[in-house]
Design a protein around this nucleic acid. Structure first.
Lengths: 198, 198
DNA sequence: GTTAGCATGTAAGGAGTTACATGATTTT
DNA sequence: AAAATCATGTAACTCCTTACATGCTAAC
């Protein structure tokens, strides 16, 4: 049935992350990997086993170009965004659907918010918040419905889990308010909301 | 080289989760799924597409037995832990290696702490804490090393990420202290350590 | 001169999801 | 009698990891 487009290689968040980083400046794989893990450190980590094949695929697709930078005889491959790559990045940055606010993807999308349109930012932040609130609701409902007494560890896990999610919701709410204020203050500012220093 | 045991089917945390829940009482798949997602709600969710194949495999391995409960003509399959399954569960609960404190697995191990030996509990809690502290260290180091100024969103993401991890570390530290107190107070008490309210 | 870090890659596989497929039973 | 939810399952696929394989270069 599914006549889905046969996507030949990798995709997912890594692609966005790589394009986003390369948009800031050209880099080679190893450096990309480190910047990535610094940026997302607390949330995710990518291994070379996924990064290099991803670069390879993006090269094949023409989204990046590779220049062999020979300082001495050291084989470094510097990747650079092509025009096609920039276009593709814009498309990815413009996506504000469910996948952009799922656990695995949200962090990466957020990391490139300064390159993202204000409207899209807002939709992603709100999408993520509803997603989390929905989750809170589900868990609370089913916990309430559970007649059987659970042991203290399970309880403690649930408590900590709920608190973590509630904390993220508060964080998102603050961000959303900040965004709204910035939007009303300078009506029409579609670019980065100033405040490079927080 | 690796003459590793060729594990024929699924494994991972789901197996432990299923065995742990079935140890409390026999259940059918659908119910198992709901209990699972109530228990872990905030952390993880498993879909039927992984639960049912897992049950199938466990049946094949003889870790569970299946009784068709026919209330009316409704085809429910009630799964029950076998002696082998109980033994296997004990083995899994006894594992206190790195995999038990990784993000994806820790929650499940913790959820069954009331069925886990006090020593193992302690090793898992401490293992998880070191893991997180190591991560904090890595990120902080590489953030400090980063000369280039990052934009405010990236900064905010890092800040929130670090804070979340630090929060979990504090939580773990409290749990560890509670465990220690319980251990010294009633030497030999392998059961739950009260303190549901933090 | 050896350890640690820089640098690039590949093959095999693990763990789970998505979408599909089906039907019974309860609630509204 | 329609909609929700209970209930079970499979095939194809995705995305990423692990372990392997290799060699250079800087620091101690």
């Amino acid at each position: 049935m599914a006549q889905a487009v046969k996507r030949s290689g990798r995709s997912g968040v890594l692609e966005l992350a790589v394009l986003g980083l390369l948009h800031e400046s050209p880099m080679h794989g190893y450096e990309l990997s480190k910047r990535l893990n610094t940026m997302l450190g607390a949330f995710r980590a990518f291994s070379y086993g996924s990064l290099y094949p991803c670069l390879k695929q993006m090269l094949a697709l023409g989204h990046v170009s590779a220049d062999g930078e020979s300082t001495g005889s050291r084989s470094k491959i510097v990747y650079r965004l092509t025009a096609d790559g920039k276009e593709h990045l814009q498309n990815l940055l413009g996506e504000a659907g469910p996948s952009s606010w799922e656990d695995e993807n949200f962090g990466v999308h957020f990391a490139f918010f300064s390159q993202t349109d204000a409207e899209v930012r807002m939709r992603i932040l709100e999408g993520r918040r509803s997603r989390l609130e929905e989750r809170l609701d589900n868990v609370k409902t089913s916990v309430a419905r559970t007649r059987e007494r659970v042991d203290s560890y399970t309880l403690e896990l649930q408590r900590h889990g709920l608190e973590s999610v509630e904390r993220e919701v508060r964080w998102l709410t603050e961000l959303i308010e900040t965004e709204r204020r910035a939007d009303t203050a300078s009506s029409g500012t579609s670019s980065v909301a100033s405040a490079t220093n927080v």
